[in-house]
Design a protein around this nucleic acid. Structure first.
Lengths: 217, 217
DNA sequence: CTACAAATTTAGACTTACCTAAAAAAATAT
DNA sequence: ATATTTTTTTAGGTAAGTCTAAATTTGTAG
């Protein structure tokens, strides 16, 4: 059985590698996990022996399919719990992350399947991120950052990055939730800021924020 | 912040001491926690320094009020989660214990208050055990083991001991749930076995089982 | 009340997951 | 192409929580 630390490493490696596409460097991982490079080296050696990743000294790690399926199971749990917290218990967006980080490590297949059933088999979590199924398959949609749109574009918000609580509060205030329609009214080329409409309200959005809102066309 | 191990020790000490009434011996604790006496000695020293218990060498430990409030918070979480698993997710009695043992350690006051609210502030868990409130107060009812009843007694089941999964399955089969009426039809003095009626069905119950069913008159 | 048994504690060790400091390798800059 | 910087690894250590084996204390039985 995997430890909490091992699960967190695999989850981070999965995310940082874009779902296993590219290798992940020691320092990236150290930063993501709030730990030191030396600790990462120790752990990746262990995960490598257990064949959840392949590790080549000085060249970073790649996640194996065995590792991927662990990561996806954890991500599935995280997203189902987030959905549960928001939809069923009425948590606010910005309150769920920390708790879901704990709940994602509860070991019980039955529990997570029951939660999935209870929620009616949702496809995406409250941030719009897709929820892997029990087999680890993800349905994915074409998404792009809001900052890539040009004036006049109409789009639907599909996700926001869920890491920063202040950002989430701000997005909540302007109603920037997954599912909402968003139209780009104008774009200032010199600083990348945008004027957008969400439900006929107009907002001024900085380039920074526009990098954290993902949309489909 | 208390570790998982510390929380488990305090919970066990609370239970074994009858809610803090009597001292708990090293070996009892070792047995309850599936560990060795030497490990218990180490941990009780630590908990004692932190003033969750008072510890006198060779004489066992007593839980302090500080320790009690930790234990009760954990027990509250355990029982609320069990209630949630059974009532909301449709778990069977005998499936909840293990999962609740994990969920009881999730750290989030908000979460447990929301669960409590969602469940409509239940007073007892699915085994009939009382759920402490947020302040750690327990409403208690007079209960006695079924084995103490005599022929002819009518009673209501209030609780069953939740430790043994086989026992729980058996009790489920005969419909011995909290809330059900139970009448003692006859009692065999030589082996302590009972004949009882639950919902007009008659069952033969061994002394052992009758020690694990708690009732009110 | 002494001797043996049972319970408990101490001593020393192990594992996991960290850490710091120093060494080594790789990347970069002149 | 060499020197410097950055990244990564190694070496050695720490804390939590566990263990076994030995020592000590307490309880018990003759």
């Amino acid at each position: 059985m995997l430890s909490l630390a091992e699960e967190n490493y695999l989850k981070s490696i999965y995310h940082l590698s874009d779902a296993g596409e590219k290798a992940v460097l020691t320092n990236e991982l150290a930063e993501a996990l709030n730990t030191k490079a030396a600790s990462v080296t120790d752990m990746v050696k262990k995960l490598s022996t257990k064949e959840f990743i392949s590790y080549e000294k000085y060249y970073g790690v790649k996640i194996t399919s065995k590792g991927k399926s662990v990561a996806l199971a954890v991500i599935r749990k995280h997203r189902l719990w987030e959905t549960f917290l928001v939809q069923t218990l009425g948590f606010k967006w910005d309150e769920v992350h920390e708790v879901a980080e704990q709940l994602e490590h509860i070991k019980s297949t039955l529990l997570i399947e029951k939660i999935d059933e209870f929620l009616g088999y949702p496809q995406v979590d409250p941030h719009g991120d897709p929820i892997p199924n029990a087999q680890g398959k993800i349905k994915k949609l074409e998404k792009t950052a809001l900052k890539n749109l040009t004036a006049g574009s109409e789009s639907t918000i599909v996700a926001v990055k869920d890491s920063d609580s202040n950002l989430l509060k701000y997005l909540e205030k302007i109603g920037a939730k997954p599912g909402k329609k968003l139209t780009v009214i104008s774009k200032e080329e010199y600083d990348g800021s945008l004027q957008v409409a969400i439900e006929s309200q107009h907002y001024f959005i900085s380039k920074e924020v526009s990098e954290n809102i993902l949309v489909t066309l």
